[in-house]
Design a binder for these strands. Structure first.
Lengths: 143, 143
DNA sequence: TTCCTTGCAAAACTTTTGCATTAAA
DNA sequence: TTTAATGCAAAAGTTTTGCAAGGAA
């Protein structure tokens, strides 16, 4: 019986239920990955997740981390970002939103949808429809 | 003496001058890569460039293609795109513009700046300024 | 000569896959 | 017991690097 004194949105129990609700079997590794990633809006790489899990004593393999992230993304639990080409970033915020990308630190910062307004957008090519809009505002140190 | 009957913007002679103008020594391989890439607005991967060059009889190594693309990008001759995380795409159009990304075919289509208008953008984080805006409109087959 | 560039191969990284073992229902 | 998930290692794909050889100035 685990103490749930600090019952966050991603406490193991909640994560388990959330995975089950998606038809994903809530194995130990999956629940740990979900607890880590879904605890707050954040952007993590597969390697960061693996390192963090192992640092906290979990037994997880690299393959399981990658497979699990792909699985979560396919169920809409997380979102995979292509920001800098060096590696994939996994975003626990799946609500529509955009990003600042700090070129100096590599940091990603969420930009809520209402902070961006398009007064004009091109019509999609014939026979296609818009599936999503990715907006990355690159920022650098001033001066 | 090469016939320049079809004198395009990227005929070898022009490319040579353009490279020299950037302080880049116009070696045979660099001129061939520039001729290929700068002949028209397009999006190519390093592997596509290598294959195309070899198909046309050029002697080029993979390392030289990668090094040359990085060199060109650092001089603003081309632009490197992070669209799908699988590999880098090199865009010969360095004027500001955006992209459609066809999720079915992987194709990239340029969107001219005037076709997009922002009526609201968030202020960059304190101490930073906007260095650029990357907009990718993902499109899929209708219905 | 001197410096820069190239090619090749190997290395480095990220991500995927095959398969025997283990855990979940 | 039956099916699915995990770990490990190896493979695959992209990009970078070390270094000897070649080419330009």
């Amino acid at each position: 019986m685990e103490p749930e004194a600090l019952s966050t949105a991603s406490a193991p129990g909640r994560c388990e239920r959330r995975l089950s609700g998606c038809g994903i079997r809530p194995t130990a590794q999956r629940v740990r990955i979900a607890s880590l990633l879904l605890s707050a809006p954040q952007h993590l790489s597969a390697e960061q997740i693996l390192a963090s899990l192992r640092a906290s004593g979990a037994r997880v393999s690299k393959a399981t981390v990658y497979n699990t992230l792909k699985l979560f993304a396919s169920h809409g639990l997380i979102r995979q970002l292509s920001v800098d080409g060096s590696r994939a970033w996994f975003d626990s915020n799946v609500d529509p939103h955009y990003h600042f990308h700090d070129l100096a630190s590599g940091a990603l910062i969420d930009v809520p949808v209402p902070e961006v307004e398009f007064s004009r957008l091109p019509p999609p090519p014939p026979g296609t429809e818009v599936a999503g809009i990715d907006l990355v505002i690159r920022v650098r140190k001033k001066q």
